[in-house]
Amino acid sequence: MSLGILGTKLGMTQVFDETGRAIPVTVIQAGPCTVTQIKTKETDGYTAVQLGFQEVKEKALSKPEIGHLSKANAKPLRHLREYRLADVAGFALGEEIRADRCIEVGQIVDVTGNSIGRGFAGYQKRHNFGRGPMSHGSKNHRLPGSTGAGTTPGRVYPGKRMAGRMGNERVTVKKLTVVRIDPDRNIVLIKGAVPGKPGTLVSIAPSNLVGRQK
């Protein structure tokens, strides 16, 4: 229930910390975002802040989208995402949100984005099935094996793991550490890998930690 920030994944590299260890980091171009809508209990039934990210040409958007953005006096923005907050006081329409307002160095964050699409993937890649023998006359190389019993029940149970579309779905990687924030260039370094290829939209939000904090 805290404000996050939208960004574009740029790629990965490594940085050295003060003890000389090499830390793998993902470089994210985070923000600047614009507050495009403030949802309140009276108007919407819940409280949230909608952020817009990535400036585009006006012709890339539809008229209703431009109409929505003009209420906040915002430039044409490609992505709109909402963060539910307990309290929306202190936010103004059209306000610019930068990374240092939402996150700080050393904080634990969750990063959400669309994973890399794998297309129509088979059993081994999609569900980590084992494979059959590759030789000694075997013709069962990457087949699924049995999909269930025979006449009874006479059908394949729903939820049976099979080949199909894999990836390009919303994935959240939890509990990553913010290594560095560069407010001038709007660049955030996060320890570890985040979903998607370079160029994908990611959302960085403070982790919802439960239990006793250390």
Binding site: L10, G11, T13, V15, F16, V27, R185, I187, L189
Partner: peptide
């Protein structure tokens, strides 16, 4: 500045 240039500039500080 494209993605590779940004990453290279981060690395350049430590090379």
């Amino acid at each position: 500045m494209n993605a590779q240039e940004v990453i290279r500039s981060i690395e350049a500080e430590q090379l």
